[in-house]
Design a protein around this nucleic acid. Structure first.
Lengths: 200, 200, 200, 200
DNA sequence: GATGAATGAGCATTCATTCAT
DNA sequence: AATGAATGAATGCTCATTCAT
C-alpha cells in the first residue's frame, strides 16, 4: 500500500530526529530521506520545529489514548500498572524512534509549541501517579518515594526503545513481562512465585 | 580560589552541552559563556567535538576509577551493588551536567573519538554485570534477565541527573538509599525490613 | 545575448583567480563579481576548489581538442609545430585569464582533482614532444635537448598571456608569427629568408 | 656553521612562498617551519608582506649586482648576453625558490612595497634590453621584436627554476649552455658550429 | 629573545526558509 | 504538487597581528 508524501516526510523526520537529534538533522537531510527537494518539503510541514512538535504531539496523544483505554474500568492497581507497563514497553519496542523523539526533545521546543506537548505528557504521567497512589492507599504498593519511583520506572521502561530488537534473543512478550515484574518489585508488590526463591 | 581559563571553558561546555545539546550549542555560545572571544576558545580546546570527547572521557574515567576503588576488596555482591548504586547516584546528583553529557552524546562522536569513550563505558558497565553475575551465581540475586535488568537499573539511576536538586525535598542520602532499595528489589534481594510490610 | 548565471560565476572566477590567485580570492570576492550572494554561489559550483578544477579542466580540454584537430593529418613537423605554436599563442592572447589560471594553479589542487588536470596537460604536451621528436628523426629539427627545448618554448609562449593586449602595438597575427619564428629558431630550423641576414 | 634565527625564518618563508604561494602560506606554517612560535616570528620580520618584499628585494638586488659585475667592461653584445643568460639560469637553478618567489609575487605586493621591487626588476631587465639593443645596432642580433624576444627569453630561462634538479640528467653547465644557445638562436645569432648541421 | 594569551576580522561553507514559476 | 533560484544569518574554524610577561 502506497504511503502519502506527507507521511513519507514524517517518517523520515522520525528516523532522523531519533538517530541524529533535532539540531543534528538538517533540512537537506530530511529532503533527501523523503526524496523531495528541500523546497517541496515545505508543502508538507510548517517549520522544522513544527514538524517536530507534530510528531511529539501525535505520539503522545496516541499513547495517552491507548493507556486511557487500557485502564478504563480497571480498578485493581496491580492490574492497572501491569497494563500501563505493558503498553508503554510495547510502544517503546515497536516505535522506538517516535518514542525516543518524544523522550529526548521536550527541551528543544520553544515555549509556544512546548505547552501542548507538556500537557499531554503530564496527563499521561498522571495515569501512572494516580495508579501508584491508589495502590499505596490500598496498601498493595509499598514504596517510600512514590514520585521518585514513578520516574525511575518510566526511565527504566523508556530504555527499551534504545536496545530492543525484534530479532534479538527476547520476544516482546518476554520484555514486557520482565518490566512488569521489575515494576511490581519496585512498587514492593509481593509476587508469590518469587518471594525470594526461584529464577524465572 | 581562581579557576583557570581552560577550566572555565570546560565548565561552560558542560553546562551548555547538557542543556542545549552538542549540536544545539554554538561555538559563539561557548565563547560567551566562557567570557572569551570565539577565537580565543581555540587556545583551550581542539575542535568542538574534541572538547566534548574530553569531557566525556574524563567524567567516565573518574566514575570508573571511583567505582573500582569502591568495590575493591568487597566480595559480597549485595554490598558491592549497594556501593555501585550509591556512587552512581551520587555522581549523577552532584554532577548532573557532566553525566547527562556522557549519557546522551555517545552517538554524536565520530568513530575515532568514540572508541575510547565506549571502552571506558564498557569497562564501567562490566563492573555492574560482573557483580550481578556473581550475585546470581551465589543465589543472592534473583533475576531472569540479568542484562536487561542491568540496563534498567542504570537507566533508572541515570534519571537522577535530570530531576535531583539539593534544594529539593529529598537529601542526596535519601535518594541514594532509595535507589539502592529499588535496585535490590529489581535484583530480587529479600530486604528483611520490607518483605511486604511497612512504608519506609 | 544573455549570459547564464552559472557562466557569470565562472567568468568572475576566471578573472579573479588569474589576477589575485586562488588563495588570494575570497568567496565573497567571487560573489560580488558574479553579483550574487555568497550563499547563492553554491547553487552554481561545488567547492571553490572544484570551481577552479572545472575551469582548468575545460580550458585544457578545449586546447587539447583544438590542437588535436589542428595537427590532424599534418605530417610535416615544421607545419605541425607552426600550427601548435599559433594555436597556443592565440589561446593565450585571447583567453589570457583562463590560460594563466591553468598555467599557475596545478599545485593548488588536491590530489583527487589534480589527477585529471595533469592527464590533460600531459596529453597536450605529448602533442608537442611527439612533433619535436618526429622532426628530429627526420633531421629537420636540430636541438640537443629536446625536452628542455619543449619546456622553454612552452614557457616562452605562455608568457604571451601576461603582456599581450589587443590594443597594443602588435597584432595577434604578428605575435603568433613571431613566436613561430622563435620556436623554429629554437628547434634549429633554417628559415631561408633569415639565415643570418635581414630584420623581419 | 650555525644559521641565525632570522635567517631560518627567511629560509622557511622562501621555501613556503615558493611552493604554496604567499596567500597559501599561513603565519603558522612559517612559525612551524622556522621552529618558532608565531609570536616570536615577529621579532624577525615586520608583517608577512614585508617579509615577502624583503626576500624579493634582496634576491633582485643580488641578481642585479651580479649581472652588473658580469657584464662590466664587456663590450661584445654576444658575450654580454652569454654572461647574462648564464648568470640568470644559474641563479634560477641554484636558488629556485628565491627566484620563483620573485617571479610570481610582484602583483601580491601593495603599491608601497611594490615600488622598490619593480625598480630593481626594471633595472635588471634594462641590462638585457640595452644589450639586445646594442647587438641590434651592431647588426649581430637579428630580431624583429626585440622587446617581445627579451620577454620570451627571460620567461624561457625563468622556467629552469621549476624543473632543474642537481640530481637530474643534465649538469648545470649543460643547462646554462643550452639556454645560451637558445637565446642566441632567438636573437638570430649565427653560431657557426650549428648553422643548420649536426646535433650537439 | 621568546611565548602564551588574546582578539577582531575573515574564512569557506551550510543553515532554514521563501518565492516565482 | 514540485522545484530551481535565491538569500540573510549562522556555522565551526583560521587569519595575521599584538602585547604583557
Amino acid at each position: 500500500m502506497a504511503v502519502s508524501t506527507g507521511e513519507r516526510v514524517r517518517r523520515a523526520a522520525v528516523k532522523l530526529f531519533a538517530t541524529k537529534g533535532f539540531h543534528g538533522t538538517g533540512i537537506r537531510d530530511l529532503a533527501q530521506a523523503a526524496k523531495l527537494s528541500s523546497a517541496s518539503l515545505y508543502h508538507y510541514m510548517g517549520t522544522k520545529e513544527e514538524l517536530l512538535a507534530g510528531i511529539m504531539r501525535d505520539c503522545l496523544r496516541r499513547l495517552l489514548d491507548d493507556a486511557t483505554d487500557a485502564v478504563d474500568g480497571v480498578a485493581d492497581p496491580v492490574e492497572r500498572i501491569r497494563r500501563l507497563v505493558t503498553l508503554h514497553v510495547t510502544a517503546h519496542a515497536r516505535q522506538p524512534n517516535e518514542t525516543r523523539v518524544v523522550d529526548d526533545h521536550i527541551d528543544v521546543l520553544s515555549p509556544r509549541l512546548r505547552r501542548e506537548v507538556v500537557q499531554l505528557r503530564d496527563a499521561y504521567e498522571r495515569l501512572w501517579s494516580d495508579t501508584i497512589e491508589a495502590g499505596r492507599k490500598e496498601g498493595v504498593f509499598d514504596t517510600g518515594q512514590p514520585a521518585v519511583t514513578r520516574i525511575a520506572v518510566l526511565d527504566m521502561c523508556n530504555g527499551v526503545a534504545r536496545w530492543y530488537s525484534p530479532r534479538g534473543a527476547l520476544t516482546l512478550r518476554q520484555v514486557a513481562d520482565h518490566h512488569v515484574e521489575l515494576t511490581l518489585r519496585a512498587l514492593g508488590v509481593h509476587t508469590p512465585a518469587r518471594c525470594g526463591l526461584a529464577n524465572s
